[in-house]
Amino acid sequence: MMRDDELLFKLGFALMPAFLLIPMPEGAVLLAFCFAAGLLVWQGVLSPAGKIKKPFLKETASITGLFLIVAGTDLACKIFLPALRGSAGFFFPVVLLNGLLIFKNERPEVKSKLCPVFVFSLLGGHLLIAWGEQWTGSVNPGAVFLGAGFFLACLKYCLQKRWLKI
């Protein structure tokens, strides 16, 4: 599998739960912010953890950082932003964890390029879903998958044309 394809798969796997399990666009805004902040904080945790020699301690430090980010973000949102957290839905910590885990092994440069793509795709996709819901009442998950497939095709075309070089 080529590198571009792998990144497209990762982007799709991170985007799909965010489209399907976050019920409202306001929740998507919260998720986008928390994802970007979480990725930054986890990179900050991973950098010193990378200097640890023993693999077990290294992995423990990395996973503890991830626990703290996901559980802490969920708790902080429940306390300080209860309305927004409510609109993000029941699966908010799951989607956040999923996104962070999928981009875990990427280099910081790739993360810094993929993060804005993820955030803007998430917000744009949610606006489209909300618009679709106005017309049809509810959008079928299959239609969301199809839309994501065509969006990734456009992105792949952009990658081929080097408009967006990762």
């Binding site: 394809d5 497209l8 792949k156």
Partner: peptide
């Protein structure tokens, strides 16, 4: 343009 990831989704 549809090969691999897009067609899979």
């Amino acid at each position: 343009p549809l090969k691999s990831a897009p067609i899979f989704f």
